[in-house]
Design a protein around this nucleic acid. Structure first.
Length: 493
RNA sequence: GACCCUAUCGUCUAGCCUGGUUAGGACACCAGCCUUUCACGCUGGCGGCACGGGUUCAAAUCCCGUUGGGGUCGCCA
């Protein structure tokens, strides 16, 4: 049986874009699902815009996402000679022809057509130039491009799209398109077909923006006598203004790197991306592992309608699609704690909060603390921002914590030193003992236990929100807790 | 403008093919419950079949049209 092969062929003209990442993801999922291979090919035939840095950034992005490939990366430009030869073959067979029209001439015709509100298509001026003349002009070094000669026929060009169904195109809608530039560099439309054939690609999953050039490529496959692969076009992702998401309009938020920097877990982000324009057919949206997504994935679940990325510029609650954050929190809270640790370490390092002891003597303490905190965090960056007081003595008492925790009851500044003394002497220093201790004290003072817990929380974390206090204190450790309470108590004057 | 694609809550979507559902789920939002705080969780609420014609006993579902949205129309990919 023929091996299933897919490909991901980005052009290296910028960072890895979330739309490209989604395309890569779907190809990868499909390949894995069917035991196939994924070809990674960098389409750099546009030398003007392609850069090595961009290629690197794309590779980095894919690696971070965990999207792996089986073949490549190949560079399309390495195969330029093969593409030229393919074009040469078409030329010899009369399936393509040299076009000597200059850019300026064509531009003029285009403008004239626009002015008269006629639709513009290449007028086939050079299609009828006799072979002898064409050869002569070529050997005289007259510049030319090579155009594909769309075969005359009454039959429309048809292909069966796995998502959109049967796409029928009238040949009159297809120009004799250019396949080789005047500088002899082949164009994408040609190179792409030649490469896909050489790489034995069986399935092409790509953005719906390629739908209209698919008939041209189908014609090329036919001209070469090659079987056409299966096409599956996927809906695009737009912003709330219904514009294509782009770095230019949306800034870094449109790049994969942004998600890496803002505390997203790679697999969680893939999980979210997969949901943009695809569904499992049941109510499942959370896929703990890639195996589960692979199992659920199928082309039938792809949506035909463009997805709108729910992001509002300038709105802090919508720095990105809130569903992305939600999915991330699901993964953050339930993934294996060992897998989460490196991400937390990285965030703490960036914030200057990391201590090497967390990898050795204090490792147990660190793991317990992370586990306690993650239950209410959404992003890995939260450990360094919201979590700051847990990892350093250098923390502020937030205003809300001061008000709701430390100033809530006038007696608090009397209670706090007593609590510190009690906790210092408590044995064992565990959840139940601490709870009993604080409840007893509350009863003695005739206040609700919440007054005491909130005060202690405010003192030891500077915050009025956080893990359950009775769980937190034993993890934090007696020494640290008592010291913090005393320090804050004395500062209350 | 021409050609192609598309249309279900604010957003992602199920349902459409094979007409009969109180049009389902998720995110977001609101309320309540839980509770030592905040989250989580649970319960409930808000909110949608773009419009107009057909076909039919019956239309989100089938057909036609309108409107809206998107894509493409390069010697970019």
């Amino acid at each position: 049986m023929e091996e299933i092969r897919l490909r991901f062929p980005p052009s290296p003209t910028g960072y890895l874009h979330i739309g490209s990442a989604r395309t890569a993801l779907y190809n990868w999922l499909f390949a894995r699902k069917h035991g196939g291979k994924l070809v990674f090919r960098i389409e750099d035939t546009d030398m003007e815009r392609s850069t090595e840095e961009a290629a690197k950034a794309i590779i980095e992005g894919l690696k971070w996402l965990g999207i792996t490939w089986d073949l490549g990366p190949y560079y399309q430009s390495d195969f330029a000679q093969e593409h030229r030869e393919a074009a040469e073959r078409l030329l010899e067979q009369g399936k393509a022809y040299r076009c000597f029209c200059t850019k300026e001439e064509l531009e003029e015709k285009r403008k004239a057509a626009q002015k008269e509100k006629r639709e513009y298509g290449y007028d086939r001026t050079c299609r009828s130039i006799p072979k002898e003349e064409s050869d002569r002009r070529a050997s005289n070094n007259e510049p030319f491009v090579i155009r594909f000669k769309v075969p005359d026929s009454d039959e429309p060009v048809v292909f069966e799209d796995k998502v959109y169904g049967r796409i029928v195109t009238n040949r009159k809608e297809i120009d004799d398109f250019v396949i080789v530039r005047s500088n002899k560099v082949p164009l994408y439309i040609l190179s792409n077909v030649v490469d896909d054939h050489r790489d034995r690609v069986t399935h092409i999953i790509r953005g719906a923006d390629h739908i209209t050039n698919t008939p041209k490529q189908v014609l090329l496959y036919q001209a070469f006598g090659w079987p056409t692969p299966v096409f599956a076009h996927m809906s695009l992702t737009l912003d709330s203004q219904k514009a294509k998401i782009s770095k230019r309009r949306h800034g870094e938020m449109a790049t994969v790197a942004w998600y890496k920097e803002h505390g997203f877990l790679p697999w969680a982000f893939c999980n979210f991306l997969a949901l943009l324009g695809w569904n499992a057919g049941d109510d499942r949206e959370y896929f703990p592992t890639s195996d589960e997504l692979v199992e659920a994935f199928s082309l039938e679940g792809l949506s035909k309608t463009n997805a709108v990325f729910n992001y509002r510029k300038g709105d802090p609650k919508f720095i990105t699609d809130p569903k992305a954050i939600h999915i991330n929190s699901l993964h953050l809270r339930s993934m294996a704690i060992e897998s989460l640790l490196p991400y937390v370490k990285s965030e703490l390092e960036k914030a200057g909060l990391w201590k090497d002891n967390y990898d050795s003597d204090e490792r147990e303490w660190f793991v317990e603390m992370v586990d306690l905190l993650r239950a209410r965090y959404n992003l890995t960056t939260d450990f360094a921002t919201l979590g700051r007081p847990y990892f350093t003595e250098d923390y502020e008492i937030e205003e809300k914590a001061m008000k709701k925790g430390l100033k809530k009851d006038p007696g608090i500044k009397e209670y706090l030193p007593v609590i510190a003394n009690k906790l210092e002497a408590l044995d064992p220093f565990d959840k139940d003992a601490i709870e009993m201790c604080l409840r007893e004290l509350a009863e003695n003072y005739g206040v609700k236990v919440g007054i005491l817990t909130n005060a202690v929380r405010a003192a030891v974390t500077g915050q009025n929100v956080g893990p359950g206090l009775f769980e937190l204190l034993p993890v934090m450790g007696r020494g640290r807790v008592v010291a913090r309470i005393r320090r804050i108590a004395s500062s209350l004057g």
